[in-house]
Amino acid sequence: EVHFESHGEEQAMRVVKMLKKRNLTVEVKVENNKWIITAK
């Protein structure tokens, strides 16, 4: 499981795309203006 924190939507979306290319399940949450990305 991979956790990634991002402060910007643009950066977060880039990471999500990259993770999805690896056929991982990606969950995105926004907490306290931080984008929290979890990949399994």
Rank of each mutant, 00 (worst) to 15 (best):
E1Y: 12
E1T: 13
E1N: 09
E1K: 10
E1D: 10
E1M: 13
V2R: 06
V2M: 13
V2Q: 07
V2D: 04
V2W: 15
V2N: 04
V2F: 15
V2I: 13
V2K: 05
V2T: 07
V2L: 14
H3G: 03
H3M: 11
H3F: 12
H3E: 06
H3Y: 14
H3D: 03
H3Q: 11
F4Y: 13
F4C: 15
F4T: 02
F4N: 04
F4P: 04
F4V: 06
F4Q: 02
E5H: 09
E5Y: 10
E5V: 14
E5I: 15
S6H: 06
S6K: 08
H7P: 09
H7F: 14
H7S: 12
H7M: 12
H7D: 13
H7Y: 14
G8C: 15
G8A: 13
G8Q: 14
G8R: 13
G8M: 14
G8N: 15
G8F: 14
E9Y: 15
E9L: 14
E9R: 13
E10Y: 11
E10W: 12
E10N: 07
E10P: 05
E10S: 10
Q11H: 12
Q11C: 15
A12K: 02
A12R: 02
A12D: 01
A12L: 10
M13G: 03
M13Q: 07
M13A: 08
M13T: 04
R14D: 05
R14Y: 09
R14C: 15
R14E: 12
V15M: 12
V15F: 09
V15K: 02
V15E: 02
V15Y: 08
V15I: 15
V15G: 00
V15S: 01
V16C: 14
V16M: 07
V16P: 01
V16K: 02
V16S: 03
V16H: 02
V16F: 04
K17R: 11
K17D: 13
K17S: 11
K17P: 00
M18P: 02
M18E: 08
M18A: 11
M18Y: 12
L19R: 01
L19G: 02
K20G: 05
K20E: 12
K20T: 10
K21S: 12
K21A: 12
K21E: 13
K21R: 09
K21V: 05
K21L: 12
K21Q: 10
R22K: 11
R22D: 06
R22T: 07
R22H: 14
N23L: 09
N23C: 15
N23S: 06
L24S: 02
L24G: 02
L24V: 05
L24P: 04
L24D: 02
L24Q: 03
T25S: 10
T25H: 13
V26R: 00
V26Q: 00
V26I: 08
V26P: 03
E27H: 11
E27Q: 09
E27W: 11
E27L: 08
E27G: 03
V28T: 02
V28A: 01
V28M: 06
V28Y: 07
V28E: 00
K29L: 08
K29M: 07
K29Y: 10
V30L: 09
V30N: 06
V30I: 12
V30Y: 14
V30S: 04
E31T: 05
E31R: 05
E31D: 08
E31G: 03
E31N: 05
E31A: 07
N32S: 05
N32Q: 08
N33P: 01
N33C: 09
N33G: 15
N33D: 11
K34G: 04
K34I: 14
K34L: 13
W35S: 00
W35C: 03
I36G: 00
I36S: 03
I36N: 02
I36V: 07
I37P: 01
I37V: 10
I37G: 00
I37N: 00
T38E: 03
T38V: 09
T38K: 07
T38S: 06
T38Y: 06
T38F: 06
T38W: 05
A39W: 14
A39Y: 09
A39I: 14
A39N: 01
A39V: 15
A39E: 00
A39D: 01
K40T: 12
K40A: 08
K40M: 10
K40I: 11
